[in-house]
Amino acid sequence: MSSIADNLGSVTRRIQKATKAAARADGSVNLLAVSKTRPPRDLREAAASGQRAFGENYLQEGLEKIEALADLPELEWHFIGPIQSNKTRAIAEHFQWVHSVDRLKIARRLSEQRPDNLPPLNVCLQVNVDNEDSKSGCRMEDLPELAAAVSKLPRLNLRGLMAIPDPDQPEDSLRDSFRALATALGRLNRQPDINGTLGTLSMGMSGDLELAIAEGATLVRVGTAIFGARDYGAGG
C-alpha cells in the first residue's frame, strides 16, 4: 500500500505536469489536502512530508484536529463544508480560510465574530455553477452583488471563488463548468469595487485536477488521491 508521503509526491507531480501543460508558471497552483474523516495521525504524516494546508468539511471534527495538531502552528486550516449560522463563531475563531461562503448573512457573521487579534479571515464565495438543486452555492447571477457586499466587510479578506461541479458529467461539460467559474472571476475583477484583487480559483479534485488546472485553478482540493478511500464511519 502506498504511503501518504508517496501519494503526496504523486499528486504534486500531477499538479506540476498539468501546470506545465497549461503553460502556466511553476508554483501557480497550490494543493489543499482534504482531510475529512481522516485521523490526526494521517495529517501529521502529510505534514511531515511538507503539506501545510488542510481542508475540513465538518466543524467539530476539524476543531478536534486543530487541537490535536496544535504543536504544528505552521499548518493552515481551511473550512470547505456547508456553513450553518450557529457554526460561524467557531469557524471564525479557528480557521484561516473559508471556501464555502454563499450568502451575505453568513459572511456578516464571520466578519463580526472574527477575533480582533487574528488577521482578517480569507474567504472564497461558493458558486453553484451547474445550478444543482442539491448543491450549496450562490447563483451566478447573484455573484456580483454578493462579492461587492462581502468585499466591504472589515474582518474578511475576499480572495476568490470556489465551486464543486458535478464530477459525473461528461468531460466537456465539466470543462465548461470550470471555465464558467474562471470567467466569473475575471468579470468580478473588472468591477470597480473589486478592482482586480481576486486571485483564487478553488476548483478541481482527485479525479479532475488536470482539467481544472487547464481552466485556471489556483488551488485544487485533493483528498482520496492523498489519503485513500474515506472511512465515513470515522467522522461527521
Rank of each mutant, 00 (worst) to 15 (best):
Ile4His: 03
Ala5Asn: 14
Asn7Tyr: 06
Gly9Pro: 03
Ser10Trp: 07
Thr12Arg: 13
Gln16Cys: 13
Ala18Phe: 03
Ala23Tyr: 08
Arg24Pro: 05
Ala25Gly: 10
Ser28Asn: 09
Val29Tyr: 02
Val29Gly: 05
Asn30Trp: 06
Ser35Pro: 01
Thr37Asn: 10
Thr37His: 06
Arg38Phe: 08
Arg38Glu: 15
Arg41Ile: 13
Glu45Thr: 12
Ala47Met: 10
Ser49Ile: 06
Gly50Asn: 10
Gln51Asn: 12
Ala53Ser: 15
Ala53Cys: 10
Gly55Glu: 07
Glu56Phe: 03
Leu59Arg: 01
Glu61His: 08
Gly62His: 09
Leu63Phe: 12
Lys65His: 11
Glu67Trp: 07
Ala68Phe: 05
Ala70Gln: 15
Asp71Trp: 05
Pro73Asp: 12
Leu75Trp: 09
Phe79Asn: 02
Gly81Val: 02
Pro82Arg: 13
Gln84Gly: 09
Asn86His: 06
Ala92Arg: 00
Glu93His: 10
Phe95Gly: 03
Asp102Asn: 11
Leu104Thr: 13
Lys105Phe: 04
Lys105Arg: 13
Ile106Arg: 01
Ser111Thr: 03
Glu112Phe: 04
Glu112Gly: 10
Pro115Cys: 08
Pro115Asn: 12
Pro115Ser: 09
Pro115His: 06
Pro115Gln: 11
Asp116Phe: 08
Asp116Gly: 12
Asp116Met: 07
Pro119Asn: 09
Pro119Thr: 06
Asn122Pro: 08
Val129Thr: 05
Val129Lys: 00
Asp130Gln: 15
Glu132Met: 02
Ser136Arg: 04
Cys138Glu: 07
Cys138Gly: 13
Met140Trp: 08
Glu145Ser: 11
Glu145Ala: 10
Ala147Thr: 05
Ala148Phe: 08
Ala149Tyr: 05
Arg155Trp: 05
Leu156Glu: 02
Asn157Gly: 13
Leu158Pro: 02
Leu161Ser: 04
Met162His: 02
Met162Tyr: 06
Ala163Gln: 01
Ile164Ala: 04
Asp166Pro: 00
Asp166His: 07
Asp172Met: 11
Asp172Ala: 15
Asp176Met: 13
Arg179Ser: 15
Ala182Lys: 08
Thr183Ile: 07
Ala184Ser: 11
Leu185Arg: 03
Gly186Thr: 11
Arg190Thr: 12
Gln191Ala: 14
Asp193Glu: 15
Asn195Cys: 10
Asn195Thr: 08
Leu198Asn: 01
Leu201Ser: 01
Met203Gln: 07
Met203Gly: 00
Met205Glu: 14
Met205Asp: 14
Met205Ala: 14
Ser206Val: 04
Asp208Pro: 00
Asp208His: 01
Leu209Pro: 00
Glu210Val: 06
Ile213Pro: 02
Ala214Gly: 10
Leu219Lys: 05
Val220Phe: 02
Val220Ile: 09
Gly223Thr: 08
Thr224Ala: 13
Ala225Ile: 14
Ile226Asp: 00
Ile226Phe: 01
Phe227Leu: 13
Phe227Glu: 15
Arg230Tyr: 09
Arg230Gly: 03
Asp231Tyr: 01
